Amino acid sequence: MRVGIIGFGKMGQIRAAAIEAGGQAEIVTVFDTVVADDCPYPVASSAEEIVDDPTLDAVFICTPNWLNRPLTIASLRAGKHVFCEKPPCFNGTEMREIIGVERASGRTLMYGFNHRHHGAILRMKEMVAGGEFGRVLWMRGRYGKSVDGDYLTGWRADKKLAGGGILLDQGIHMLDLLLHINGRAFDEVHALVSNLYWKTPGIEDNVFALMRDSTTGCSVSFHSTMTQWRHLFSLEVFLERGYLVLNGLKTNSGTYGEEVLTIARNRARAPAATFDSEERIHFEVDASWQRETDAFFEAVRTGSEVQYGSSTQALQVLDLIDRIYENERHESEELRETLLGHAD
């Protein structure tokens, strides 16, 4: 397959390395507003040149948030298979528009929900689906990072360009994993959204949410933050006969620590599990980028459905984000009034 990459910054280069290593496609051309002189690939004059190139089979879209939707739609309409980074777009309404174009095009569309391809997540999903520990009772997901003032000096500080703050930027990954593990949508949502520290209008720096799947009773606690002050990833799944706890995530930067999955089965007497009874699995290699890229090309080659990162899954997580934003409005207005009162 012949591939073009739109957006050749950090993510575009990560995707290029995975494409090259997989050997299933040839990178024909790339485009970015700034490309290094030593770029190993031919550089297009514009994104449109790649979209309209009839010799290309697929396009990888690795651009800032506001460009993802229009470039995806244009590429699908031009007959290209598309791999696009998150967020797919800004809300469920926009995602439904994309799905309509996808279905009309007959092409493969996959989104970069990369965390599903991490070794620990694959193991967790396999164990939950296998039923060995019974049904999921509750989950807790925390995903946070520390940023400095430079983080909000560019497009990320503009809601029209970013679509939102930490929830859409990073929290979307944790929400996707919670939906992935549960296997169903959460129909009850309660949320608090704030920007008490960075104080950037429309760009939240913290989101707390409680969610529940009323059919199964599974309840979820979720926190997404950019005031963690030290990067953190933690996903806990507690089941009837044991638990799965993932702390840390293997990344290129190494800032989220070691990826360690802890597994324990309940005992007959309290406490139901002990530290000594836990099994700890260390995932020392991050093969998620390669798995994800290979999965995209496999779906294109065989015409099979996208398993992880499909447009349907993207819609599910965007609908959930919509509900979090909508649910918090009245609460945040009351919070602002309270804070203003305290300031007086």
Rank of each mutant, 00 (worst) to 15 (best):
V3G: 00
G4Q: 06
I5L: 02
G7M: 02
K10E: 08
G12I: 04
I14M: 13
I14C: 06
R15H: 15
A18F: 00
A18M: 00
Q24M: 10
V34W: 12
V34A: 14
D38P: 05
P42W: 00
S45Y: 00
A47Q: 12
I50D: 06
D53A: 13
T55S: 08
F60T: 05
I61E: 09
T63I: 08
W66T: 08
L67M: 14
R69N: 01
P70F: 10
T72L: 04
I73W: 00
A78K: 03
C89H: 01
E94L: 01
E97K: 12
R103Q: 10
S105R: 07
G106D: 10
T108Y: 03
M110A: 12
R116K: 14
H118V: 07
R123A: 14
K125W: 07
K125L: 07
M127H: 04
F133M: 15
V136P: 13
V136K: 13
R140F: 13
K145I: 12
Y151L: 02
G154W: 12
R156T: 11
D158E: 14
G164R: 04
G165E: 03
I172T: 05
M174K: 12
D176R: 13
H180T: 10
I181P: 09
A185D: 15
A185L: 03
L192H: 10
L192F: 06
L192R: 15
S194V: 11
E204M: 04
F208H: 14
A209G: 06
V220I: 14
V220P: 06
F222C: 03
T225D: 13
W229K: 12
H231K: 09
L232V: 13
L232N: 15
L235W: 09
F238D: 11
R241I: 09
G248Y: 12
N252F: 03
T255A: 09
G257P: 14
E258D: 15
L261I: 10
R265G: 08
A268G: 01
A270G: 03
P271M: 04
E278H: 11
R280I: 11
F283I: 07
E284I: 06
E284F: 04
E284Y: 08
W289C: 10
Q290E: 06
D294I: 00
F297N: 07
A299W: 01
V300W: 00
G303C: 00
E305S: 09
E305H: 04
V306W: 00
Q307L: 10
Q307F: 05
Y308M: 13
L315H: 09
V317D: 10
I324T: 05
E326P: 01
R329V: 14
S332A: 10
S332L: 04
L340C: 08
G341S: 06
H342K: 14
A343I: 13
D344M: 05
